[in-house]
């Protein structure tokens, strides 16, 4: 019996290896996605005493745009090509999960839509100021200046989203001078190349910013839900009324 069970387990493992991989990025992303959809549908919390939920900033209607921005991001593309489609699962020969018997079109047909990433980047840049505005609203809600723990989280969320958006590869190409052949030919070569170098430093950690910013959105959302549910954790750090 035990042998039969292990055979079944073995065949499932062979068919869907990612179910058994210690693949924290994929699984945490799926868990976050399911949680976010459930939370938004079952228990919507739009705002609590001037603290605006990040999913509603500026309106929940922009969520598909934000979702597509993440879906077409080079960091997430690498993740799902590897972990969902096994093209390849791993760089090591014995764990690749890819073979010549499997069809593959890369980004030449359906996934060519990922080339629209830069348009979603433009939308992302337009949305960023709203997150800083949320911070402003959160500290001025009671009149004067009241810095709550939630306000710090809102500011942290805004900063991390900014780091993610500004470390984007498409941003690097379009705005930071990645498409420039000759920096010396520009009006201010040092500033032009300096900006490119600074952005490149951020870009090196793009995958990290992508993931950390996603986690903090969820933490902030959870915290606001806890406040709305009446948990006594609305700490005030600084108050100037």
């Amino acid at each position: 019996m035990e042998n039969k069970n292990s055979n079944v387990l073995g065949s499932i493992k062979k068919a869907i290896p990612e179910l058994f991989e210690p693949n924290w990025r994929l699984w945490s992303f799926i868990a976050i996605l399911i949680f976010a959809i459930l939370a938004l549908v079952v228990f919507p919390v739009k705002e609590y005493k001037g603290l605006i939920d990040p999913f509603y900033s500026p309106t929940i209607l922009v969520l598909p745009v934000v979702g597509l921005f993440r879906l077409t991001c080079y960091a997430y593309r690498k993740d799902y090509y590897r972990n969902v489609f096994n093209h390849p699962q791993s760089c090591a020969a014995d764990e690749r999960g890819d073979s010549n018997s499997r069809g593959y079109s890369g980004e030449t047909s359906l996934f060519a839509f990922n080339n629209l990433h830069r348009y979603l980047l433009y939308a992302g840049i337009i949305l960023l100021p709203f997150f800083y505005y949320d911070f402003y609203v959160s500290v001025t809600y009671f009149g004067g200046f009241v810095l709550r723990f939630a306000s710090v989280l809102i500011l942290l969320n805004a900063i991390l989203l900014t780091l993610w958006v500004f470390s984007c590869h498409a941003f690097r190409h379009v705005f930071a001078g990645g498409n420039v052949k000759c920096y010396d030919c520009s009006l201010n070569p040092k500033a032009r190349k300096g900006f490119f170098n600074a952005q490149s430093m951020l870009n090196k950690r793009h995958e990290d910013w992508a993931f950390i910013s996603l986690v903090v959105i969820i933490l902030l959302d959870l915290y606001l839900r806890a406040l709305a549910a009446g948990w006594p954790i609305d700490f005030r750090i600084l108050q100037v009324l």
Partner: peptide, 9 residues
């Protein structure tokens, strides 16, 4: 180049 799916191996 479209076949590259930037998996960084």
């Amino acid at each position: 180049a479209g076949y590259c799916n930037i998996t960084k191996c």
